[in-house]
């Protein structure tokens, strides 16, 4: 049997040897991939955690430690357990100072910019119901134009006290976060766009607005639970 197989392989490759070749290649590849995944998993997770912490500490400089939570779709909040967020949940971070007192909440917002999705992190304080800090998580906007959202002082000043007040029945924001033309800001919930980078500025505003609309109605009634670190 094996000799005849071998003899056949001289002229026409037998189906068996095709399957054998593909089987061996796939098996070798599979082992390599799984092995690398197992080896790098811890380091990659640690990197991700450090990156998140750094982003949260930037928007809430008084923070010393963070806890990850999910705002559940049906209302209420729950500590995030590794890897299984229920569908529709909004992730946020509760940041605490050295005495384990709540400093504020940090959450991520994302919206389509000029080139790609602009992802931002913002810090929120329940006392003033406003945004108090802002950082860019990732973006691929045009260098020299869209990337001014990192550095433009007038633009960053928008996020020192951007109002995110909820309406009377706590179902949505009382006033949507609006990005207005450069120099036209006259309300605390408006964001003054960067001249020449309106699309990127709008993406930032939309990212914050979308997350706030989903997150804050569920989060606000539960603030007492977050007051001290659990």
């Amino acid at each position: 049997m094996t000799t005849s197989d071998h003899a056949m392989a001289q002229d026409v490759t037998s189906t068996f040897s095709l399957i054998r070749a593909l089987g061996i290649v796939s098996a070798v590849c599979g082992v390599i991939i799984v092995g690398t995944y197992q080896l790098t998993l811890d380091a990659a997770n640690a990197n991700r955690r450090i990156a998140t912490e750094r982003a949260v500490f930037k928007v809430l400089p008084a923070a010393k430690s963070i806890e990850e939570y999910n705002a559940l779709p049906g209302g209420g909040i729950a500590p995030a357990i590794k890897g299984d967020a229920p569908a529709g949940a909004v992730k946020f971070y509760a940041a605490y100072d050295a005495d384990d007192k709540l400093v504020g909440i940090a959450a991520e917002g994302a919206a389509k910019g000029y080139a790609d999705t602009v992802r931002v992190m913002f810090g929120y304080k329940p006392d003033c119901q406003c945004v108090v800090g802002f950082g860019v998580v990732s973006m691929r906007e045009t260098p020299g134009i869209g990337d001014k959202i990192y550095t433009d002082k007038a633009f960053l000043a928008n996020f020192e006290a951007l109002e995110l007040k909820l309406n009377a029945d706590l179902s949505a924001l009382a006033n949507e976060v609006k990005v207005v033309k450069h120099g036209a800001k006259n309300q605390p919930w408006q964001i003054d766009a960067i001249a020449g980078a309106t699309i990127t500025s709008r993406a930032v505003g939309k990212g914050i607005n979308d997350t706030a609309q989903h997150l804050l109605p569920k989060l606000y009634p539960n603030f007492e639970k977050l007051k001290t670190k659990s």
Partner: peptide, 22 residues
């Protein structure tokens, strides 16, 4: 076979870079 092999090592690099620097 070659593409499967190449894709494997690309995945390896992908994981390795995530572990080295985000």
């Amino acid at each position: 076979s070659y593409i499967a092999i190449i894709a494997t090592f690309v995945t390896v690099v992908d994981y390795a870079i995530q572990a080295i620097s985000l």
